[in-house]
Design a protein around this nucleic acid. Structure first.
Length: 437
RNA sequence: GGAGAGGUGGCAGAGUGGUCUAAUGCAUCGGUCUUGAAAACCGACAGGCUCGCAAGGGCCUCGUGAGUUCGAAUCUCACCCUCUCCGCCA
């Protein structure tokens, strides 16, 4: 959620020479969103104030006279004239209260669908073409044969079965068998170990189902409701990422400043309806309704979040480096960046079968956007300390299914076998090569 | 799924229609004392909204929401959650 109060202020940011409202409008424009809603919000907020002032004045009177009534009753004096006077006020107060809550509901419905302010370091652009290359790492392997795409490798080895998954569930599902299932498990284990043991994240396995309030907290709802699977007759939804349960772990809490940053690494399966992605990546494991992912989540002090964002990104990169997979880091431009993010780096791994870089991780700093929605704040122990919103960050570390694809494609051999990356061999019982049985 | 009990501040815990602006204890923070620490003593100690240049007012929140009432932590209803027992179950 954006900060409506700041929208009203006339102070100028010395860095940009603009008021917050001007900055935010510019940000909306760069995202390609409609800016007129801002003035509407300000107008509604002004009327909200007015009604609240009125309502509170009457409330105060009610409380005062109520005391007098109590006093008279105690002294066995007559209070009937005060009682009848108060009856009218009581109904007026209720009326105004209802007016306040309907105004606030309207304000909320507008504010909740507004995206975050993009950070001034984010490149302005029109499409993913304008994403900025931050760095590239690793060497693309030279193939003496035409590298195959992962589904072909997997099907040839008899370790990935899409057809039977289509029978059992439908499109965009797969069975992993034998070495593929083992590889998936090895990747999961390897990533969790790396982040928890070497990068200082606290390991977590969250619920894989969350209620709609949690989804509002991390800003999937109300705008992107169609993207998730809903369990009929309940308020439960399958999580599209561990970000939802893990970020909401501290919802409505006030953390201690000295505990920041708090870092979690979580494993979860992810479920996405992929509504609106018809025709995209219909073959293979790239875009499935269900996939496994290791997610990094941080709760950070606002002064440190951009620094920590870089750090979190390098933690995700480390996985690719250890697996010796070539990749690049892109800073997403204003049109490509996600709804809630203020800044986002995508990690794209090289897939020789596809001859393309494909997203394998998305590392975002949300600033206080999610914290406002979910009510996650912090305070120092100092006497008159003010509570502030934390900054939330998250990034895939990594998407396991796509990592499996990258391993299959980059490590494939001419005879159809696949070499197991060195760091994974201990997790595969020493297996060095996946071959057709 | 059935039966019962219960949800009050960071924690424990009092309060069952009118000085509740929620007692008290613990924890935490600041101070006094001390060579230092502990103890003791003194003080601070929820969050949000709103009016005001400010000083300082006012309003809301006792699981959530609705209701009764001039007035609700307290009464009524619904929902959520926790605990105990029974049944079922990995």
């Amino acid at each position: 959620m954006i900060d409506i109060k700041s929208l009203e202020q006339t102070e100028v940011n010395s860095l940009t020479g603009l008021t917050y409202r001007e900055e935010y409008k510019r940000s909306l424009k760069n995202r390609g969103a409609d800016t007129s809603v801002i003035d509407k919000i300000l107008q509604i907020n002004a009327s909200r104030r007015q009604v609240i002032t009125q309502q509170e004045g009457l409330r105060a009177q009610q409380n005062k006279v109520g005391e007098e009534i109590a006093r008279r009753k105690r002294n066995k004096e007559d209070a009937s004239e005060l009682l009848s006077e108060m009856q009218g006020i009581s109904s007026k107060v209720k009326e105004l209260e209802q007016s306040v809550s309907s105004i606030e509901a309207e304000l909320n419905s507008l504010a909740l669908v507004l995206p975050n302010l993009v950070h001034h370091t984010v490149p302005v652009g029109e499409s993913e073409e304008d994403n900025q290359l931050v760095r590239a790492s690793g060497v693309k392997r030279e193939f003496s044969f035409k590298p195959k795409e992962h589904w072909e490798i997997g099907e040839n080895l008899g370790i990935i079965d899409f057809e039977r998954a289509a029978k059992v569930t439908g499109a965009r599902f797969a069975f992993l068998k034998g070495a593929a299932a083992q590889l998936e498990r090895a990747l999961l284990q390897f990533m969790m170990d790396l982040h928890s043991r070497e990068h200082g994240y606290n390991e977590m396995i969250p619920p894989f189902i969350a209620n709609s309030q949690a989804f509002v907290g991390t800003s999937q709802f109300p705008k992107f409701k169609e993207d998730v699977f809903h369990l009929e007759g309940t308020d439960f939804h399958l999580i599209p990422t561990a970000e939802v349960p893990v970020t909401n772990y501290f919802a409505s809490e006030i953390l201690r400043e000295s505990d920041l940053p708090i870092k979690f690494v979580a494993y979860s399966p992810c479920f996405r309806s992929e509504a609106g992605s018809y025709g995209k990546d219909t073959r293979g494991l790239i875009r499935q309704h269900q996939f496994n992912k290791v997610e990094l989540v941080m709760f950070a002090h606002p002064d440190k979040s951009f620094e920590l964002h870089e750090q979190l990104t390098t933690h995700a990169e480390r996985v690719l480096q250890l697996l010796e997979l070539p990749y690049r880091v892109m800073c997403l431009c204003t049109k490509d960046i996600g709804f809630g993010a203020t800044k986002c780096f995508d990690l794209e791994v090289w897939l020789p079968g596809q001859q393309a870089y494909r997203e394998i991780s998305s590392c975002s700093n949300f600033g206080d956007f999610q914290a406002r929605r979910a009510g996650i704040r912090f305070k120092s122990d100092a006497p008159k300390a003010k509570t502030q919103f934390v900054h939330t960050l998250n990034g895939s570390g990594l998407a396991i299914g796509r990592t499996l694809i990258a391993v299959l494609e980059n490590y494939q051999q001419e005879d159809g076998s696949v070499i197991v990356p060195k760091v994974l061999q201990p997790y595969m019982g020493g297996l060095a090569k996946i071959e057709k049985k």
